[in-house]
């Protein structure tokens, strides 16, 4: 998938490697006029953008500018936050996810999510993967086994844990826990992965491993990743969206292909941010 592999440390600036170019831009998500508010206080307004199938879209910008709010609107996890209101339209696979006919739990099986802090359940490694499968009606033992094998392979965890699937997931290292969480999201065969700073709570080495894995997953999955690490965004993303806060409300300033956005930004704020002058 990716040609020049980024090795090891995520804190050094690697070559500007975008993976496969997304030649045919097929829209997966269309977001129109999205606004998010908590307790009547608007934190994000007027966001419209397209997320393309099989590509990695990076959301960049300083903290507090609404990137995470944007992300959690995409799988309606914002429903869980008391006092949160989302308006606008999000068309996902031809359907508005805010329609009353949409079943949220089915929607969330199609859109996986990875959080900043690894959050495996306090169960065994196997149970962590079984729980979502059983919840969504997969009961056949051999089918479960083969799916567990597949996803652990995809995240490169199989060889590390194959002998201790019955051990507590909390006994794994931070990086392993995060990869298990990714495996847990993959096991439901989603088409999209939402990632909220998946590497920021990890040490540099684990962070590198996870980053490399994300690159391998691109193409098979549409990936939307929030990151504070500009170098990382540059390395792995095909598209980038730059958010900024004006008058205490988060706004989308610029959106486009990753390389042009970094090398010849259209907006002065973007230029200042990617060059490190602001933020």
């Amino acid at each position: 998938m990716s040609k020049g592999l980024v090795t090891g440390n995520a804190y050094t600036l690697g070559s500007i490697e975008q993976g496969e170019p997304c030649c045919e831009a097929v829209s997966h998500f269309s977001i129109r006029d999205l606004a998010v508010s908590y307790q009547q206080e608007t934190v994000l307004s007027n966001v419209s953008l397209e997320v393309y199938k099989g590509c990695i879209t990076a959301l960049i910008g300083p903290s507090g500018c609404g990137k995470s709010s944007f992300l959690s609107a995409l799988n309606r996890l914002s429903d869980m936050v008391p006092g949160a209101k989302v308006s606008g339209d999000i068309i996902f696979e031809g359907e508005n996810i805010f329609d009353t006919s949409v079943d949220v739990r089915t929607l969330r099986t199609k859109i996986g999510m990875i959080f900043q802090k690894p959050n495996p359940f306090p169960l065994s490694i196997r149970k962590n993967l079984e729980l979502p499968l059983k919840e969504h009606g997969v009961r056949n033992k051999s089918e479960i086994e083969s799916k567990i094998f597949d996803v652990l392979h995809s995240v490169g965890l199989w060889n590390e844990v194959k002998d201790r699937l019955h051990c507590s997931a909390l006994s794994l290292s931070g990086g392993q826990q995060q990869r298990l969480c990714i495996a847990r999201a993959l096991i439901l065969e989603p088409s999209v992965l939402l990632m909220d700073e998946p590497c920021s709570a990890l040490d540099p080495i684990s962070s590198g491993i996870v980053e490399e894995m994300i690159q391998r997953l691109a193409g098979r999955y549409t990936i939307i990743i929030v990151t504070h690490n500009l170098a990382q965004a540059r390395r792995i993303a095909n598209y980038a969206a730059f958010f900024w806060m004006t008058e205490r409300v988060g706004k989308l300033i610029e959106f486009g292909q990753c390389r042009p956005l970094f090398e010849s930004p259209q907006h002065s704020l973007t230029a200042a941010y990617v060059s490190g002058e602001k933020g």
Binding site: L77, M80, F115, C181, L188
Partner: peptide
């Protein structure tokens, strides 16, 4: 964390 993880998996 676990409530959010569960919700995100549609559990």
């Amino acid at each position: 964390d676990w409530r959010r993880a569960g919700a995100a998996l549609g559990v």
